Simulated scan of single mutants.
Amino acid sequence: MAEKKSILLLLPTLQLNGSSETLAALKKKAAILPNADATGLEALAASLGGKTVDSAALAGAEDALLVVNGDEAALAAALEAADRRTLIVVAAADGVAFYGLAINGKAGSVDRKVCAQDIAVTIATISDLPVVEDCTGAVIYQVMKNPNLKLEEIKKLKEALMRMESVIQRDNREPWDKHDCA
């Protein structure tokens, strides 16, 4: 199973309300928080285990949280490197945009005021990163497809565990005998 990955783009010169092909691609499926204050987000990302890289290193990186400082070219590189298991968070001059994994692309603009702590804990929640014990942020559920994301994941894991236990109790490994992973 592929691991979840997050890319945090710190783009202080980018205006989310600007117009370009890259911004249009982002805004098409992003939830935008125009009332976001991302001050201190880079330090919080480091506390989550974020690794600072340049945009050229995005394609091959395997770290759970990548932090990129840059401009619109970095945004284009991140959108190119992303797959269905990637969360992209863009901290721009005029707000923050969430794009990709578990994000409701139809949310549009969310008027909730958020701070860097909220953004960091939302990234951690979606990407399964450990949160530090002195965290005071709140998950930004308004940008998520399913506010009960973690409950659904736990439910699926419990169901899979029950199926595996029933197979073990029957002492019948038929489904696994057909695969090399057994």
Rank of each mutant, 00 (worst) to 15 (best):
M1E: 07
A2W: 08
A2I: 09
K5W: 10
I7C: 00
L9S: 08
L10D: 02
Q15W: 03
L16V: 03
N17L: 04
E21Y: 02
T22S: 00
P34E: 04
L44D: 06
D54Y: 13
A56C: 02
A57Y: 10
A57T: 15
G60Y: 01
E62K: 12
A64L: 11
A64W: 15
G70I: 13
G70C: 14
R84M: 14
T86V: 13
L87P: 00
L87I: 11
L87F: 10
I88W: 03
I88N: 01
I88L: 09
A91I: 15
A91K: 12
A92W: 01
A92K: 06
D94Y: 02
G95Y: 09
V96H: 01
Y99H: 09
S109P: 05
S109C: 04
D111I: 00
V114E: 03
C115D: 13
A116Y: 14
A120E: 09
I123N: 07
V131I: 15
V131D: 13
A138Q: 15
Y141H: 08
V143L: 00
V143M: 03
N148R: 07
L149Q: 10
K150L: 12
E152H: 09
E153Q: 15
I154V: 14
K155V: 03
K156H: 04
K156Q: 09
M164V: 04
M164N: 02
S166W: 08
N172Q: 06
R173D: 06
P175M: 12
P175H: 10
D177H: 03
H179D: 06
C181Y: 01
A182D: 12
